[in-house]
Amino acid sequence: MILKRVFLNRLSGTWMLITLVIILSLPLVIGIALYLKASPIFESQSLYQLIVSTDWSPCNGNFGFWPFIFSSLYVTVLSFLFAAPICLFAAIYLTQFSSKRLIQLMHPVIDILAGIPSVIYGMWGIIIIVPFVSDVLAPLINIKSSGYSILAGGIVLAVMCIPYMLNMLIETFNTVPIGLKEASLSLGATSWESVKHVVIKKSYPGIISSFGLGIAKAFGETLAVMMVVGNMVQLSFNPFEAGYPLPALIANNYGEMLSIPMYDSALMFAAFILLVVVLVINLVFRYFIHKTQSQ
């Protein structure tokens, strides 16, 4: 009886440890696998060349990733500019000013926004945002645009990132001790002044981290962006032009990548870049959060 229990204990303890090790080694395994798959491409081009070259002609063996990296950065920055202020103000309102009932209502709203699959956002983008960009925004400044553009990608991406950033911001503001705010109020500050000078100042690291993680999330988002961004290899600062972010490059070309030499290495290299960028951003900002939490 006791032997059986001890045996069971050993067995399940080992299984628990194995599962934990499996899952923790996953990023390393993914990284190594993608790197090995991508490594043939380093023989023909240097890493620096791959990243800064703008010449993308797979048939001639030229793989310049700059147009894709540029598009990814551009869409991400745009989406951040749209989403960040909304998230910041909404988080302030929900944690400082709002009634209990509104908070109760907002919980499922955030949950559902976060749960809607990216393909649905993409479809919504095609139905609403793309025509909005081509028929309303572009004529405003006398530009012709098909609507499938960096701008449309940025808007859709912003909506997708809002629940993610908002959640983290709310958590951050909730950790500010109420006593601090009360002290500020009792010194005669208005409630907005105490938010501005106490709550925001106190949660500065948390705000920066939430923004950083939101950016990482936006950088890796695939399907929704790909559906509205136009997918054309070009370098343009005009947000009404089409772009071609890295994730879209991978997703669009998996079918034909076996017929052109080195093409699959190039795509795996793209995946490798995504992994490294997102993982590094995540590790840095999460470290920030963990550091401030443990203090």
Binding site: E221, T222, P247, I250, A271, L274, V278, R286, Y287
Partner: peptide
């Protein structure tokens, strides 16, 4: 805390990267 830190980071990896990895595997 270290494990939680890594798991959080793992949560952030984009699904297209998992797709590419799954394909390789």
């Amino acid at each position: 805390n270290t494990i939680r830190y890594f798991l959080d980071a793992l949560w952030g990896i984009p699904s297209i990267v998992y797709g590419a990895f799954g394909f390789t595997l």
